[in-house]
Design a protein around this nucleic acid. Structure first.
Length: 405
RNA sequence: GGGUAGAUGGCCGAGUGGCUAAAGGCGACAGACUGUAAAUCUGUUCCCGCGAGGGUACGGUGGUUCGAAUCCACCUCUGCCCA
């Protein structure tokens, strides 16, 4: 199976500018393609991860990737897929985020002369001259057309600043610049990027007469149509400091039944014939599928060692036993005790499982907390000796934490 | 530049001088049921306090009042209409 067919089989391809040309190009390793990443946070998330995987797949098929960090576009802010105004970031924050991205990406993609290249659009966007740009690029677009783009439509009601409106132009210019200076002939991106990417191919055609191609990857949506990789407390990050490997593993272990196969296809590198086999597993093996998904992804992002640890910890916690070796742990000091003892509420707050005493109190009163496999009440107290051996706190069904003195 | 409507808890949204820590919905969390799933049912959902109670909070700053999310002034931001 060639790469294009594989991407298709995995359900990754959303839209393409020219099906046949693109198949020809990437199946023969003739694409020099770029994917842009705007430094909107100090860590990559699952959406970025998909793009990086795509990059890797294409690279393995002989195509040449360019990672474009949006040090310049980050100053503008992409309105696509947003219903409200994007807050502006300071230059320092952007720079900081760029550095964080860079570090994380180097773990996934091999960079080097004949491998992948990393560029930063700050290098050309920040020194553009406004009038010059207007004449050179602005003349190639009509506002009428731009306003018809899907990404702006939903913003027409809530308001769209001129700053954000220009994002499309910036991205189009990037593509044009990469085409001229780096021989880039193709752009990939999330499906919400489609209009921006088309603007790029159009600009290239108008300026140079060359054909350039664009392809979007399917956004990873769950069965309810919401973007995956988000939790109540925010995104699922790739940075282990922001989302621990265990939490990461658990996120995928807990995906909806309906979404498991989709995730396996779109996110893992398990070969297609194996995937077909998995797909035919009986319904009773649904949990095996989830474990497989969680393990594969954790291994890809955090490495085999962390993946093993996360899997072991999960098994220990959910399938009986009580191996607390790999649980997140908080070490308390004697100062945390009051009169030599500490209650369940104190432990919950100190360990970070609860953000306030009130929240912890509610949980305890609702019977949602157990310590060392015993449901606790408000009156329960623990002494320094109890703590010395380590206490295993369980909050609700799925949150575990160990506390030692 | 002129006119006009608005800014309420994580989000949506009611409230329009005391009964309002603020209806309702969504989300989230916990319990029951399960398969670490979904659906369903029950409870919880600003902070401190065991509790009585206290402290903050309705865009910002001042003011009127015994008392303000609610009235007044100014400011900031946003939508819409006219130029």
């Amino acid at each position: 199976m060639k790469i294009f067919e594989e991407l298709q089989a995995r359900g990754l391809i959303a839209q393409v500018t020219d099906n046949d040309e693109i198949r020809e190009l990437i199946n023969n390793g003739g694409a020099k393609f770029y994917i842009g990443f705007d430094p909107t946070a100090d860590s990559l998330h699952v959406g970025h991860f998909m793009a990086l995987c795509l990059m890797k797949r294409l690279q393995m098929a002989g195509n040449r990737p360019i990672v474009l960090i949006g040090g310049g576009t980050g100053h503008v802010g992409d309105p696509s897929g947003r219903s409200d105004l994007r807050t502006m970031m300071t230059a320092e924050k952007i720079q900081h985020n760029c550095n964080c991205f860079k570090k994380q990406m180097e773990k996934f993609i091999e960079f080097g002369d004949d491998k992948a290249v990393m560029l930063n659009n700050a290098d050309w966007l920040l020194k553009l001259n406004y009038v010059e740009l207007l004449r050179e690029v602005g003349a190639c677009f009509t506002v009428n057309n731009m306003l018809r783009a899907e990404c702006y439509k939903q913003r027409m009601e809530k308001g769209l600043s001129f700053l954000e409106f220009n994002y499309m132009i910036m991205q189009a210019y990037d593509f044009y610049h990469l085409h001229e200076h780096h021989g880039c002939n193709m752009q990939f991106g999330g499906d919400d990027q489609w209009s921006n990417m088309l603007a790029g191919t159009e600009l290239i055609r108008k300026k140079t007469g060359d054909d350039a191609y664009a392809m979007t990857i399917t956004l990873l949506l769950n069965s309810e149509g919401k973007k995956m990789g988000k939790t109540a407390s925010g995104a699922v990050w790739l940075d282990p400091e922001k989302t621990s490997p265990f939490e990461f593993y658990q996120y995928w272990r807990n995906v909806d039944d309906a979404d498991v196969m989709k995730c396996i296809k779109m996110l893992t590198f398990i070969p297609m014939d194996k995937i077909e086999e998995i797909e035919n597993w009986e319904d009773s093996r649904i949990n095996e599928k989830k474990e497989l998904l969680a393990y594969e992804l954790t291994e890809l992002v955090h490495g085999k060692e962390e993946a093993d640890k996360a899997k072991e910890a999960a098994h220990a916690l959910f399938s009986g036993g009580g191996d607390s070796a790999n649980m997140p742990t908080t070490t308390l000091t004697a100062d945390d005790l009051v009169d030599g003892v500490i209650g369940a509420v104190g432990l919950l707050v100190k360990s970070g499982l609860c953000s306030s005493n009130g929240e912890a109190k509610r949980l305890v009163q609702q019977g949602g907390v157990s310590i060392n496999d015993e449901v606790v009440d408000m009156a329960k107290r623990y002494s320094a000796e109890d703590l010395a051996n380590g206490l295993k706190i369980r909050k609700g069904k799925k949150h575990f934490h160990k506390v030692v003195l």
